[in-house]
């Protein structure tokens, strides 16, 4: 079985500004990966390329051995940093929408999680607060049984209490062959759930290493190492 995500010389430029410059990377199946880097380092560009929302300027990215397209969209569950929910719909209509388009979506699971967070399925999305919308979005994304989850800043906009619950949700809602990539700069909060970290800066991968190696060989936490690598 091929690696879940692979890129070779992956480059994306906007005009003459390069957002990713020749990234080579392999992400194996069955782990939780932290994609860590300061603002503007290329995290979102990388995730958008994996979702076929951008096309590479040079090089290639493959998911499950295939170029991003319909086939990969079926197995990738993506949480963008934006709230992309359709505002005029009610929460339960949004659940039906996901059921209609994704074969791997589990509506029961989504309803159950909504109930646990006290989100009323009959509420219109337009009337919900930004934080609640982000929770709805995360629940929808995690209610799929995908092979690869790409979560762009999943905990940025919610309060610390909900953050706990969300990380818990992430941890308990994927099977062991699935891979989760979490992009964030809030490292301390997610460090304990990560198996592998990728440091990215100015469009280049600075480090790709299992968390165990960092702890054992360097005797540091990921947070400490991050602060050292990205010292301003």
């Amino acid at each position: 079985m091929s690696a879940i995500l692979e890129c070779r010389d992956l480059t994306k430029s906007f005009g003459n500004k390069s957002a990713l410059a020749g990234v080579n990377l392999t992400i194996e199946r069955g782990q939780i990966v932290g994609l860590l880097g300061p603002n503007g380092s290329g995290k979102t560009t990388f995730i958008k390329l994996a979702n076929d929302l951008l096309s590479p300027t040079k090089g290639e990215i493959r998911i499950d051995g295939k170029k991003p397209g319909i086939e990969t969209k079926r197995i990738v569950s993506y949480l963008p940093e934006k709230t992309y929910l359709i505002e005029w719909m009610k929460v339960h209509q949004m659940i039906t929408f996901f059921t209609d388009f994704y074969e791997d979506f589990k509506a029961d699971k989504a309803h159950e999680m909504m109930a646990r967070l006290g989100i009323n399925p009959n509420d219109r999305l337009k009337t919900l607060s930004k934080g609640t919308r982000e929770k709805v979005q995360l629940i929808l994304v995690m209610s799929r049984e995908a092979d690869l989850y790409l979560l762009d800043e999943p905990i940025g906009g919610v309060d610390p209490a909900a953050r706990e619950y969300i990380l818990d949700t992430i941890l308990h809602n994927y099977n062991e062959n699935a891979t989760i990539v979490i992009s964030t700069h809030l490292i301390a909060d997610i460090e304990k759930i990560l198996d592998h970290v990728i440091f990215i800066n100015a469009g280049q991968v600075v480090l790709s290493s299992p968390v165990e190696t960092i702890r054992d060989e360097q005797g540091k936490s990921v947070d400490t190492l991050f602060r050292e690598v990205f010292r301003c």
Binding site: N51, D52, L53, I70, E71, K73, R74, V76, Y78, P80, K82, T83, Y84, L85, I86, F101, Y102
Partner: peptide, 17 residues
């Protein structure tokens, strides 16, 4: 709005051409 604003993130990640 549906394709090129924020909703586009949802629409263009559906398994649809």
């Amino acid at each position: 709005k549906n394709l090129l604003s924020e909703e586009g993130y949802l629409m263009f990640t559906l398994p649809v051409k």
